[in-house]
């Protein structure tokens, strides 16, 4: 029973990039510098829930998301999706799986092919995966457009005739055209105006209800996540530092990084503003600090922090935190 509720399970997912070595270094067998983008991430997502992933730029959120459907090949790790192994799928199997997991990209200005009308893009997706069935093309297209709140007349337009919000709606419609069970929204609202952000967030929330979608929602703002997510995972330098139900994380953030992120959120009343406890910038992923990765920015750093890296400890109600304290 419990097994069945889990839609996607990720275990020990890692992605490293080797930097180019100079010829001399290669000859002297100096090992290539490794850039750690995603480091040993384990997560499981239940059917019908929304998982939010937050973190600063460069924390590996996008790499993680792309690894999930192997747009980037992960180095190690097991990804299973409703009893299918994504990490070892053949090219053919992968195409079938990708039909079930759709992605909405950050920048709606480049994620739609400038040479195709919205209608063409939607019909193509429907035809390739045969989700269009026997329904006439224009009906299928206008149904999808209606789903994302666009008028049927948008079918004949090209991306450059659309505003940012409209493009993102069209991109969502294209993702939905293949009837996915899971949607990965990679910073889907970060490039939009605040008012449009709200609209798209509401749209995603409605779609989730209507189509019983499971959503992974990636953002760099906690406030955006809090509106849509059931669970939140906080990433820092490729690792998950805190993971739990949204209300637990917001009412009782345990990791100092999560607290700092929350403090960074602007408060309507500046007098009540919490002063951020975090200092400095995210360290280069090429030169990770020893021990805990957050040690040189953490207000509570102690000797033990720079000696050993904390493991993710599970508290009651499934709240996981990677911190010595």
């Amino acid at each position: 029973m419990a097994e069945n509720r889990v839609l996607m399970n990720i275990e020990g997912l890692s992605k490293r990039y080797s930097l180019r070595r100079s010829l001399l270094d290669a000859l002297c067998r100096v090992p290539a510098t490794q850039l750690v983008a995603v480091d040993n991430v384990s997560l499981s997502i239940e059917r019908g829930t929304v998982l939010g992933i937050v973190g600063e730029s460069g924390s590996g959120k996008t790499t993680l998301a792309r690894c999930l459907i192997r747009l980037i090949e992960p180095d190690t790790g097991v990804i299973s999706f409703s009893n299918k192994r994504i990490d070892i799928a053949t090219a053919y199997e992968l195409r079938q799986i990708r039909k079930d997991i759709q992605m909405v990209f950050q920048d709606p200005y480049t994620s739609l092919n400038p040479r195709m009308t919205i209608g063409d893009a939607l019909t193509e997706a429907g035809k390739v995966h045969d989700t269009i069935g026997l329904s006439p093309e224009n009906e299928y297209v206008s149904e999808l457009l209606k789903l994302v709140g666009l008028a049927p007349s948008f079918a004949s337009r090209r991306p450059r005739q659309l505003s940012g919000g409209q493009r993102q709606r069209a991109a969502i419609a294209r993702a939905l055209a293949v009837r996915p069970t899971m949607l990965i929204a990679d910073e889907a609202v970060s490039a939009l105006d605040v008012s449009i952000q709200g609209q798209i967030l509401n749209l995603l929330r409605d779609l989730r209800e209507e189509l019983k979608l499971t959503i992974i929602f990636i953002a760099h703002q906690l406030s955006v996540i809090s509106h849509v997510a059931d669970e939140v995972a906080v990433m820092y330098l490729g690792q998950i530092v805190e993971h739990g139900a949204t209300k637990d994380i917001f009412s009782n953030p345990k990791h100092p990084y999560t607290r700092a992120l929350m403090a960074a959120h602007p408060h309507p009343d500046p007098r009540n503003r919490i002063i951020p406890e975090m200092k400095g910038e995210i360290p280069s992923p090429l030169a990770l600090p020893r021990g805990c990765r957050f040690v040189n920015r953490c207000p509570h750093a102690a000797a033990v922090c720079s000696e050993s890296a904390p493991d993710l400890q599970t508290f009651s109600n499934g709240h996981r935190v990677a911190c010595h304290f």
């Binding site: 992968l94 992605m103 994620s111 092919n113 193509e124 390739v128 991109a171």
Partner: peptide, 25 residues
């Protein structure tokens, strides 16, 4: 470009991506 990545994510075949999405551009 992201639309090529998006086409991959949609599970399109390589030849479709190449000739229908990239070459016209």
């Amino acid at each position: 470009e992201q639309y090529i990545l998006a086409a991959k994510g949609l599970g399109y075949s390589t030849w479709r991506i190449l000739f229908k999405h990239a070459v016209p551009n």
